[in-house]
Nucleic acid binder design. Structure first.
Lengths: 217, 217
DNA sequence: GTTGATACTACATACTTATGCGGTATCTGC
DNA sequence: GCAGATACCGCATAAGTATGTAGTATCAAC
């Protein structure tokens, strides 16, 4: 049989923490190797944290918040995954947590079964999100169709270079075109995007996801 | 009792389509008011589409693709929600579908129970995503902590104005500061973000989600 | 009461950008 | 063979940007 996955629980409410611990430990493939009431207490146990596969943590903790906790974890134990469990499902908390690096975001009123399946799917590389939370995330992605424009391959690469802050001159050298050639394409880009400055074009490109944030430097 | 929700299924494979129809129709609160083998066939029935609450559709359809179908739906029946069901779970298809406006993305190997609960949660304003798909989406949001910078309120508003393409002069008038005052702040922004051009700053602001795409014009 | 940080104004200058207009080469369809 | 589209080059100019250096006002801390 596979080695059980190591789990640390960080939650300041004793009842909830013990409840989670009991349910999780009941599963053969999951083992709670530590449970703490604060991030500080957990991170003191560096060795324990280092061999942890998954952190299940509250967002509103005394001292270091759950958000800061996630950042700490991603920095020091990058292979571990974090599930935030919380009573809040407002935009701010959700995005803060996900930006910080949490892979899952569950509401505390989840059932024990949901908790266990959330943990398993996070360990398997998934992201357990409650449907409402998922919708918030999805809504950020949605781009109304009329905002879509077709840019040529060349135009896209020039747009990317613009986003990187390169000058016309530099871009020309990169693409083996003259500075005036770059100028020509940029005019076309501006017309298509209906803008008339460099930064506006970059802005629009990000908004319409014409260029992928991940590909920029 | 509440009126049942109206559902249209678009899927070219007869067996799958009939399977879905059977399962969905079995539920009292859900009613399949139409099932089609292509988007074109579905959209011909304009009146039917107009009273549809949810479209359950394949992504790889003959003729108009599922992606185009979603765009059509968001354009013509903006109150309806779309769930894409597909055999693909690669980045490209997922993001295309979500950008187009689908709220859910399920893999075809889901169980009937999952299908029904996906439909219900989409109708309730949620986003049913399989955990793998959710993870892809989450990964896009993650910003490594070291990229974070603290900008003052003033700096953020100037950065937003930069993204909108306003000139120093215009920004000065908006914020009741001199052009040189704006210049002063922009220097500081550049130093903090470690850039040295306007578009690079805008680019970094989007990447680090310092400014919210939704708030820009 | 002076030191230092923060917020802003002022001016100078080299550089970059936005935009208008005219030109050439290549390819496509009639 | 030519009309039209597409992709590029060149030049000119006004406007805008990046950056250095320097001065003032305010507030908080020692």
């Amino acid at each position: 049989m596979e080695k059980a996955s190591n789990i640390i629980i960080i939650e300041d409410n004793n009842y909830i923490r013990n409840g989670w611990k009991t349910f999780v430990d009941f599963e053969d493939d999951l083992e709670v190797i530590g449970d703490f009431g604060s991030c500080e207490a957990a991170f003191e146990q560096n060795k324990l944290c280092a061999k942890t596969d998954l952190f299940l943590m509250d967002i509103g903790l005394p001292g270091m918040s759950g958000i800061e906790g996630v950042q700490h974890i991603k920095m020091h134990y990058p292979d571990a995954v974090c599930i935030m469990a919380t009573v809040f499902d407002d935009d701010k908390h959700v995005f803060e947590a996900l930006k910080a690096g949490a892979v899952g975001y569950m509401l505390k009123n989840m059932s024990p079964e949901e908790l266990i399946s959330a943990i398993r799917s996070a360990l398997r590389g998934g992201s357990p999100l409650t449907p409402n939370v998922a919708r918030m995330v999805i809504d950020v992605l949605y781009v109304p169709a009329d905002g879509q424009v077709e840019l040529s391959r060349r135009e896209k690469s020039i747009l990317e270079a613009l986003a990187k802050g390169h000058s016309y001159n530099q871009i020309g050298k990169q693409l083996f075109l003259s500075t005036d050639g770059i100028r020509y394409h940029i005019r076309n880009i501006y017309t298509k995007l209906q803008v008339n400055s460099r930064s506006e074009a970059v802005s629009k490109a990000f908004q319409n996801r014409i260029i992928n944030p991940d590909t920029i430097s």
